[in-house]
Write a protein that binds this DNA or RNA. Structure first.
Lengths: 211, 211
DNA sequence: CAAAAAATCCCCAATATTGGGGAGAAAAAA
DNA sequence: TTTTTTCTCCCCAATATTGGGGATTTTTTG
């Protein structure tokens, strides 16, 4: 049986969810709490396999509690359950190491399924959350190149150096060309990118994934 | 009913899956094909809501077919179903706009669930896939967090301006402070970020998502 | 409330960058 | 092969940035 600990500040929800989880024969509800300040103590006492964690709670947020838990017990799986569906919360939860993200749902079956999946080493994301994660993922990698700009090999090289924060002198050294040549290349780069300063060029280069 | 078209080169699998989908009362299987070269024609003829697409197929991969489909029919949802669980395939599929990724599974119920979720505008990821996506996501953002750097509100504002490529003078104007103040802030920013030039600061800011 | 931190401003001087020209060799394209 | 692009280099002068000192006033915090 999967040992589960629940954190949820809303009394009604906590009690109904507890009752439901306790009635499942694959889950052993080891404890349920309204406050995550005692999270580490709860872990130590109940050593759960999976923690079902609300985000919005008084005193300390579920994400903060999860960070604490993961620091001490990296093997405990944490399943976030919340009403928040905005990118910011999703992002923070994922970065903090959440093993799943379930949107609060009147249908309690999904909790069981999510807990089982997470316990088995997978992750569970509610469909809307999954869609947002995929969208975030895509926007990171799918380049948008409305204006296709061609930089020569040398120009890319120089731009690459600029991104690394190198000065003209350092670039000249690194590329084994004269200072004045670097100057020329950068003039051309600025012309092509329609910018007129190094920071702008760097931002544009990163945005367009030119380098 | 959800109109579905299936692409799967394995005859046995295609037929058993077809039969299963056809027996569902929420799904209308509009067609099933062993070859994705006719994908666009299939879309035009059967105008499905959801396409269930294998990756590994002769002549043209499911991902390539999906790219073609998405180009012409961006509203058609594509659900990838495959045996591949490696990061490379997952990554490519997501970047190409997949709405879901189901690992081939002897239990056909998950297909129905995935199709319904995708059709409703969400995404469906098999637990192992979701775990890998979350891991990829984390590794992108969490890596450069060991040094937690705190910038003040003003400093973030100034840094934000620098990222936009503004000069000291422009920043002074935009933030309604004196040139010398901008200078001071930037000196502090450089100190905090351990850099000594604008391009470096900009790169670091973007990397650390400080702004 | 007192201390610390943040935000605001100033001076000066060294260095770096940018923009304007121009020009010759090497490589790639027509 | 001729033409064009790329890569290379130089000069000069204007402007911008950086680093080193400060100092004052708000806010925040202990």
């Amino acid at each position: 049986m999967i040992r589960v600990v629940l954190f949820e500040d809303n009394k009604n929800l906590r009690e109904s969810l507890s009752m439901y989880l306790a009635s499942s024969d694959s889950i052993w509800l080891a404890g349920s709490f309204s406050d995550a300040r005692n999270a580490l103590w709860a872990m130590k006492t109940h050593h759960p396999d999976v923690v079902l964690m609300d985000i919005q709670m008084p005193h300390i947020t579920g994400i903060e509690a999860m960070i604490d838990i993961k620091k001490v017990y990296p093997n405990i799986k944490v399943l976030i359950q919340t009403v928040y569906e905005d990118e910011d919360h999703i992002f923070k939860a994922i970065c903090a190491g959440a093993n799943g993200y379930v949107v609060k749902n009147p249908n309690p079956e999904v909790y069981i399924q999510a807990i089982e999946e997470v316990h088995a080493g997978g992750s569970h994301l509610s469909p809307n959350i999954a869609a947002k994660v995929l969208a975030m993922f895509q926007s990171q990698y799918v380049r948008i190149q409305p204006t296709f700009i061609e930089l020569t090999q040398r120009e890319k090289e120089v731009l690459g150096c600029m991104v690394k924060g190198m000065s003209y002198k350092m670039i000249a050294d690194a590329c084994d060309i004269k200072f004045s040549t670097v100057h020329s290349h950068i003039k051309n780069i600025y012309e092509k990118l329609h910018v007129n300063s190094a920071p702008e060029a760097v931002v544009k280069a990163l945005e367009m994934r030119l380098i």
